[in-house]
Nucleic acid binder design. Structure first.
Length: 569
RNA sequence: CGGGGUGUAGCGCAGUUUGGUAGCGCACCUGGUUUGGGACCAGGGGGCCGCGGGUUCAAAUCCUGCCACCCCGACCA
């Protein structure tokens, strides 16, 4: 491409209100442009990168035996009603009506349609296994889009679906996808961790996430390096080897604690550490109030609660509800005398003579013990903390952050049962198909790569993904010998099939260098003052030093650097 | 949805307190001088001041309703 006559621009200043490095750099590089909250235009250079990312994924999917299809994004609402997900997605689904007032949605994910497509093919156990994939826009009305391409409302996902007759088959299909994912992300040069995760709205038997390791990641990953344990904090189990306290149980005592409502305030009042306290949190679970008890220095893990009690909606109860069920304003809830279900974290069971709220403003009870109140259930309901013992007992866990770039699910028969996808086995019994689903967000991959590969000047694309792999920068386009040499070299480079550009703009060299570094050109060839000696300068984005190369040697050198590369454009 | 903030030229901002002809930097156009790390001089173009009502002789500015965007808490590729 010739920059002078191409759609190409850069912004000199940082993007206002953009918190993520990737969002800022991609917008400044003219690769993406926000249209509205969480919706972006994909401009020429950005699209090139996305295409390269998707091509890698496509090659690996095909190599793993998957066939490409394309499903609609505009889908009759009834499809999701049938599977029960119209309700579970709720407000995060974009809904609309056609001219006859029939309800449609914009697909947030495509399990239902793939199940329908599979039904066309599947009659017998002989019709499986197989695997389909697509690249398709997904629409999710996220409450809070942010971080450039990381959390958006319209995005392209590669989604794949496997169909097997039984769990053994599903395991095989799942592992094929799993390996294809590893190869894809390895080829993109992404540093990632694989963690077990919550199955969430997808349901099913198993969920594993591919998490790109970055500072800005929205997910907290719990790792135990020695054993290789890795889990999303949502599902990380807690283990304690402590014994139950053998202290003699004292008689409970009501204490006036004026002005102390938060755990920290109460702890300061009693001159005790926060782990001598029990927090009583009033939650609304599918609209019904529940009391959740965790140690004062612990937090409730809402995903664990959702799984434990099979609830879909979980939120802290409103101050009005708290007043109603405890008889006191927020901050003084305690388990004594509560008439709502009381769920207790298993580590609370180990304590004796602890301090709790008195369900009365400005009062707490001390020396409270488990026999003093009704307990409906004891379970692991807390969020793990960094340094806690790993649930496998191997050692303390460390935290790191990640961006979820891929997710693999063993769905089991959830959708096949809902969508009536059955086959006949050898004995002519109708059996539900075992499904798996596998997603990769290509825009998130792009953002994650930028988060992991940038410097103070701009993006450092790996050479396979750079939108411009080789740039010929003519220092002074008005000097004939430079312009001619640059043009000649550009013409030769085009024949290599690499993504090449010539910066033929009438700009100062500093502007050109800065732009090339911002957009992440991999190899920059500068044609300038040394051209009269037959020399050009080569600078690779992953090397510090520039090299002077003779004009005759530059082409073979570039070919060597990119050897093994496929043709693009 | 709750809490906080911002909407003025393509981008970044001042002006709003105290109404009185809409400004600055970058970018853009013309001419000239420059040319290996975001040049300089001179001249110029570009605005439903987020949108709608209201107050006023007069509104970017005051009042009011709405919208959008950003940040902090509940979702997921």
């Amino acid at each position: 491409m010739r920059l002078k006559s191409s759609y190409f621009y850069t912004l000199r200043e940082d993007v206002k209100g953009e918190e993520s490095v990737s969002g800022n750099l991609l917008v400044r590089a003219g690769m993406i442009k926000k249209t509205s909250g969480g919706v972006y235009m994909m401009l020429p250079l950005g699209l090139r990168v996305i295409n390269k990312i998707e091509q890698i994924i496509r090659e690996e999917m095909v190599a793993a035996g998957s066939q490409e299809v394309s499903m609609p994004a505009l889908i009759p609402e009834e499809v999701y009603v049938e599977s029960g997900r119209r309700e579970s997605f709720g407000k995060s689904m974009f809904s609309l009506r056609d001219r006859y007032d029939r309800p449609f949605v914009l697909g947030p994910t495509h399990e239902e349609l793939f199940a329908a497509a599979a039904a066309m093919k599947i009659n017998s156990y002989k019709d499986m296994p197989f695997n389909l994939f697509q690249f398709q826009k997904k629409f999710r009305d996220e409450p809070r889009p942010r971080f450039g391409l990381i959390r958006v409302r319209e995005f392209t996902m590669k989604d794949a679906y496997s169909f097997d007759r039984d769990l053994e088959g599903l395991d095989i299909s799942y592992n094929k996808m799993f390996e294809a994912y590893k190869r894809s992300f390895d080829r993109m040069g992404i540093r990632y961790a694989i963690v077990t995760a919550d199955t969430g709205v997808m349901g099913g038997l198993l969920s594993e996430e591919f998490q790109a390791l970055t500072e800005i990641g929205e997910d907290i990953l719990v790792l135990e390096p020695k054993s290789g344990y890795a889990a999303n904090i949502e599902v990380a189990g807690c283990l304690t080897l402590e014994e139950a306290s053998s202290q003699e149980h004292l008689v409970e005592e009501k204490v006036h604690t004026p002005g102390a409502a938060t755990i920290e305030e109460v702890a300061a009042f009693f001159h005790e550490k926060t782990d001598k306290f029990i927090k009583t949190l009033i939650y609304s679970l599918d609209g019904k109030p529940h009391a959740l008890l965790v140690r004062g220095d612990h937090e409730v893990n809402e995903v664990k609660i959702q799984k434990l009690l099979d609830v879909s909606e979980i939120e802290m109860a409103s101050p009005e509800v708290v007043l109603e069920v405890t008889g006191a304003e927020v901050g003084y809830a305690g388990p004594l005398g509560l008439e709502i279900p009381v769920i207790v974290d298993k580590e609370v069971e180990l304590l004796a003579n602890f301090i709790v709220g008195a369900n009365e403003k400005d009062y707490h009870y001390k020396n409270v013990n488990l026999e003093d109140f009704r307990i409906d259930q004891v379970a692991d309901i807390r969020l793990i903390k960094e340094g806690d013992l790993c649930e496998n007992g191997q050692g303390p866990v460390v935290f790191t952050r990640g961006i979820e770039i891929g997710n693999t699910f063993k769905l089991g028969d959830k959708y096949s049962k809902a969508m009536d996808l059955y086959y006949s086995d050898e004995k002519n019994h109708l059996i539900p198909v075992m499904m798996g689903s596998y997603g990769i967000g290509s825009g998130r991959c792009m953002a994650a790569i930028v988060e992991q590969n940038h410097n103070e000047h701009g993006i450092l694309w790996p050479k396979e993904l750079a939108p411009i792999q080789v740039a010929v920068v003519v220092v002074n386009i008005k000097k004939q010998e430079q312009a001619q040499a640059g043009e000649a070299l550009y013409g030769e480079l085009l024949k290599t099939g690499l993504d090449v550009c010539i910066d033929d703009r009438d700009e100062r060299i500093g502007v050109k260098f800065n732009d090339m570094e911002l957009i992440g050109v991999y190899a920059r060839i500068t044609v300038g003052r040394d051209i009269d000696r037959g020399l050009v300068e080569l600078k690779l984005s992953d090397e510090k030093e520039k090299r002077l190369v003779s004009i005759e040697e530059i082409l073979p050198m570039i070919k060597t650097i990119f050897s093994g590369e496929k043709a693009h454009d």
